[in-house]
Design a protein around this nucleic acid. Sequence first.
DNA 1: TTCCCCTATGGTATCGATTACATATTGCTA
DNA 2: TAGCAATATGTAATCGATACCATAGGGGAA
Lengths: 332, 332
Amino acid sequence: MASIKTIAKLAQTSVASVSRVLNNSGYVSADLRAKVEATIAQTNYQPSSDARVLRGGKSNLVGILLPSIDVQFFGILAHAMEQALFDLGYQSFICSTAESAAHEARYVAMFLSRRVGGVIAASAEAGAAHFAPLRAHGIPIVAVDRDLHGYASDSIVIDHDLGGRMMAQHLIDLGHRTIAVIGAPLHSQSIQRRLAGVRAALAQSGLQPVSEQLGTTHDFAQSYDLASRALANRPSALIGLTDIAAIGAIHAAHDLGLRIPQDLSIIGFDDIPSAAFVLPRLTTIAQPIRHLGRSAAHRLHRLIAGDPQTLEEALPALTLIQRDTTAPPKPA
Amino acid sequence: MASIKTIAKLAQTSVASVSRVLNNSGYVSADLRAKVEATIAQTNYQPSSDARVLRGGKSNLVGILLPSIDVQFFGILAHAMEQALFDLGYQSFICSTAESAAHEARYVAMFLSRRVGGVIAASAEAGAAHFAPLRAHGIPIVAVDRDLHGYASDSIVIDHDLGGRMMAQHLIDLGHRTIAVIGAPLHSQSIQRRLAGVRAALAQSGLQPVSEQLGTTHDFAQSYDLASRALANRPSALIGLTDIAAIGAIHAAHDLGLRIPQDLSIIGFDDIPSAAFVLPRLTTIAQPIRHLGRSAAHRLHRLIAGDPQTLEEALPALTLIQRDTTAPPKPA
DNA sequence: TTCCCCTATGGTATCGATTACATATTGCTA
DNA sequence: TAGCAATATGTAATCGATACCATAGGGGAA
């Protein structure tokens, strides 16, 4: 690929002048500028980022760590972050860690050698030790949906406890008294907090879950099994701590011959697109996923820019999306 | 961040020796090696990729262009590519172009300045002119699910025509004679080919679609509308050219009081996770999405390595996933 | 006319890592 | 014991772009 030297030669001038044209710095006569710009256009020349960074420029690179973008929730989150960061002038390495600590460590080493300006780490609850090198080099880290025990410079988390309360309260308000809860993965802080919120709201009404089924893997098949087990306790309503859990429950209930919502109410959490695809359409608590991503991008940008003000702009509220899977229980 | 010079100073030796330790090249005494490795570990030093690339190394960077990773299909595809590429030693820029030509051009310029070793372009049917600069610089391009009119060095496309035939044939075999087709986006080559396949299979049985509704936007809402229109023709079966289209059709049929599959059979294409989430579970043609991604990664790797053999390893076959939305038509 | 400043351009050190080359110390063999 | 190969380490050029410095012509003010 052509270098600035090539351009200088072709335009019969010096590298310094080409650089001045490229950066609109210093003095360049109109004639020279025109000639240089012409040869640049002809050769499709693009200055090397590597050389610029080496010379002392900012790398404009950021690393994004998340469990896996083939999971809808993270796909949406990653997309929102990447777009926001690109608009701010950054390029992103989107990395799926599969929650593996080894994988995460390899990506962190890569970030270091690529001299990223910052990192966003979403979810994935594996140990945070791999972040130590980043921290040591003063690279800002923004955590999303995850606490990073002192490693993160900033962290963006919605109120999962409140989310849990909202799910439970909605069912209580409809008149339900026998409520089951299922969800996964149990090692996730977010899941634990939602569960705590559910318990708290139920307790406030003198209730407790008639069944709690927490799994390790967050997928459809396991959710189906968890739901089947929970339904053995004949609840009139079931809380899925995620939409996937709730969708698994819809299938389990369906296969048991239960009608939704007449025989069983179900509520989920997240409001991923699939929630509106199932029939009956899933009632759920909507998380502002894209907003979360954009916020993370902007906060990281401010940290990289060295802007100290951590102005805590509030995230939009969680909202109940009432669809077709919840209704009052049938009279006993 | 520490540089090789820093390490050399700390270890009381020269940059050349540190480099030798880093690359296991030349002669280094056990003593020196130990000392250098110790200081490297202490400082969490990682050699700068920028300097290495500048010096003449490969960049190990690849660009991935696709419409948007918040669409499940592309999220899965991107994930498969990124993982395969990472295992091959590459880092990926996953870029969502939103099918915008301007966006695509900006990303291409970025690829050039980052000196990517290759590019994978998935779908997005916008003009291919932006690829000219890449081509001019001899950067290999692999197209996935898209023809790139002479720009791509290689291209990985499944047999959409066959897929279309399979959908139609399945319904014909069940005894359906009045079949409608819906889908989007109509400007997509893949969609057009599937449609051609559907028409061909129907024609072979002396049939033709009772209704064809093609839309410009590929989302749930538009699919619902297309399906509503198609259903006005009272087909006994409906073909969704994508799963999203088919899912929209399920909802439209449901809202019209039609039972699936008793009153209406529906078949989709892709087999994204949501296809198994809807109730009734969607019968569909499964596309080997992950395999597509891995193949693209490996082909690009071979092209970058300069390996001329384009050994056309066959993609796995399309398969009919028979679930609960298709059945013989009810006797008239 | 002399001095100074603005305009215009070129030369070159620098960033971090690699590598060809130079230098130096061994240890063997002839 | 001279001489050469193998081992061990350092010096410096290089990659592409930037920016500081030097050089030089032109124009206006004193």
